[in-house]
Deep mutational scan, measured.
Amino acid sequence: MFKRLMMVALLVIAPLSAATAADQTNPYKLMDEAAQKTFDRLKNEQPQIRANPDYLRTIVDQELLPYVQVKYAGALVLGQYYKSATPAQREAYFAAFREYLKQAYGQALAMYHGQTYQIAPEQPLGDKTIVPIRVTIIDPNGRPPVRLDFQWRKNSQTGNWQAYDMIAEGVSMITTKQNEWGTLLRTKGIDGLTAQLKSISQQKITLEEKK
């Protein structure tokens, strides 16, 4: 169930391209415009997507990853294993993690069937560096609404905000991946996880038929 919630949630996290980005210092504006741009692209490019579902990787690479804190999220997933990894191991892992996100997020976007969304009203940021933004996803086919909290983090150097995690039903996506990959990290280390991520990233994206 959580895996499905995570995939549905990713439908609204794909941010804007650099040329049309919203105010990078306001995570609420980023979330709002990102959702609108993403849904528009999914709707307008269905012919290309249906002809070649792996085209979704391109959308992810162009529109999402430049505005997601990939390395920060990847380091959180590694936890204690990050500090013990060599620079070469980290570089290989982050490259594999990025390719994994292209496949995983692309597969999530393949679930698009006309969903709509509501974003919580903007709250004062103050001096906060981590801000959760509640998004409610509404399914046109009558499924119950899904309420999610996207975690946005302020870059201490640039002042810009980027998304790095999502919490559904009190469970963090980062925590879920830590639990899912924990045994592999304990037995085969970061190299074993890197190899698995490379394998997963090679899987073809498949479209979910409308139910």
Rank of each mutant, 00 (worst) to 15 (best):
residue 194 T to N: 08
residue 34 A to R: 11
residue 40 D to H: 10
residue 44 N to H: 13
residue 75 A to R: 06
residue 8 V to P: 02
residue 110 A to K: 00
residue 89 Q to K: 11
residue 39 F to Q: 12
residue 176 T to F: 13
residue 62 Q to A: 12
residue 79 G to A: 09
residue 112 Y to H: 12
residue 108 A to N: 04
residue 203 Q to P: 04
residue 181 W to S: 07
residue 49 I to V: 01
residue 52 N to H: 03
residue 114 G to R: 12
residue 168 A to M: 03
residue 103 Q to F: 03
residue 208 E to P: 05
residue 108 A to L: 07
residue 93 Y to A: 07
residue 172 S to C: 09
residue 20 T to F: 06
residue 197 L to C: 00
residue 14 A to S: 08
residue 194 T to S: 10
residue 58 T to E: 15
residue 126 G to Y: 02
residue 174 I to G: 07
residue 114 G to W: 05
residue 203 Q to H: 10
residue 59 I to S: 03
residue 142 G to F: 14
residue 163 A to R: 05
residue 136 T to N: 14
residue 91 E to G: 04
residue 175 T to P: 08
residue 118 Q to T: 07
residue 140 P to I: 07
residue 68 V to C: 00
residue 63 E to A: 04
residue 184 L to D: 15
residue 102 K to H: 06
residue 80 Q to D: 13
residue 161 W to Q: 13
residue 68 V to D: 11
residue 195 A to M: 13
residue 80 Q to K: 15
residue 40 D to V: 03
residue 80 Q to L: 11
residue 46 Q to P: 03
residue 135 V to A: 13
residue 59 I to F: 14
residue 52 N to L: 06
residue 28 Y to V: 08
residue 43 K to T: 06
residue 192 G to E: 14
residue 24 Q to E: 06
residue 204 K to Y: 07
residue 208 E to H: 13
residue 24 Q to L: 04
residue 105 Y to T: 12
residue 45 E to C: 14
residue 76 L to K: 02
residue 9 A to K: 00
residue 192 G to S: 07
residue 108 A to I: 12
residue 185 L to S: 07
residue 11 L to K: 00
residue 42 L to P: 11
residue 199 S to C: 12
residue 30 L to D: 14
residue 111 M to I: 14
residue 205 I to P: 08
residue 56 L to K: 11
residue 34 A to T: 13
residue 167 I to C: 13
residue 166 M to E: 06
residue 210 K to Q: 01
residue 113 H to W: 13
residue 199 S to H: 05
residue 67 Y to D: 06
residue 8 V to Y: 06
residue 51 A to F: 05
residue 58 T to L: 14
residue 166 M to Q: 09
residue 75 A to T: 02
residue 13 I to P: 04
residue 45 E to Q: 15
residue 6 M to F: 07
residue 20 T to M: 14
residue 138 I to K: 13
residue 160 N to R: 08
residue 63 E to S: 08
residue 37 K to T: 13
residue 129 T to I: 10
residue 83 K to W: 06
residue 53 P to T: 03
residue 67 Y to L: 07
residue 61 D to W: 12
residue 65 L to V: 03
residue 120 A to V: 05
residue 43 K to L: 04
residue 90 R to W: 13
residue 182 G to L: 13
residue 42 L to I: 06
residue 56 L to E: 13
residue 113 H to P: 07
residue 107 Q to V: 07
residue 148 L to E: 14
residue 115 Q to P: 09
residue 113 H to S: 12
residue 174 I to T: 09
residue 99 E to S: 08
residue 139 D to N: 11
residue 189 G to I: 01
residue 23 D to T: 02
residue 65 L to D: 12
residue 149 D to S: 07
residue 145 P to V: 11
residue 149 D to M: 09
residue 166 M to H: 05
residue 13 I to G: 07
residue 193 L to C: 04
residue 3 K to H: 01
residue 18 A to Y: 01
residue 68 V to M: 02
residue 165 D to Y: 10
residue 160 N to Q: 13
residue 83 K to Q: 07
residue 75 A to Q: 00
residue 201 S to N: 00
residue 146 V to G: 07
residue 89 Q to N: 08
residue 146 V to P: 09
residue 147 R to K: 02
residue 172 S to A: 13
residue 113 H to K: 11
residue 5 L to G: 06
residue 41 R to S: 10
residue 71 K to Q: 03
residue 74 G to E: 05
residue 148 L to R: 14
residue 90 R to I: 05
residue 62 Q to H: 14
residue 65 L to H: 00
residue 169 E to V: 03
residue 57 R to V: 02
residue 9 A to N: 00
residue 85 A to S: 08
residue 70 V to T: 10
residue 137 I to V: 01
residue 14 A to N: 08
residue 159 G to W: 12
residue 134 R to A: 13
residue 24 Q to F: 01
residue 178 Q to A: 00
residue 25 T to W: 11
residue 206 T to A: 09
residue 196 Q to S: 15
residue 111 M to L: 03
residue 30 L to S: 05
residue 48 Q to K: 14
residue 165 D to C: 04
residue 84 S to K: 00
residue 110 A to Y: 04
residue 170 G to F: 04
residue 127 D to H: 00
residue 63 E to T: 04
residue 124 P to W: 02
residue 10 L to F: 03
residue 82 Y to K: 15
residue 184 L to P: 12
residue 161 W to N: 00
residue 27 P to T: 01
residue 163 A to K: 06
residue 180 E to V: 14
residue 98 R to G: 01
residue 120 A to P: 08
residue 79 G to D: 02
residue 167 I to Y: 01
residue 8 V to N: 00
residue 52 N to G: 01
residue 88 A to C: 11
residue 102 K to T: 13
residue 197 L to D: 07
residue 45 E to H: 11
residue 102 K to L: 01
residue 15 P to G: 10
residue 118 Q to C: 02
residue 70 V to S: 11
residue 73 A to D: 02
residue 174 I to N: 03
residue 15 P to E: 08
residue 48 Q to G: 07
residue 12 V to C: 00
residue 76 L to G: 11
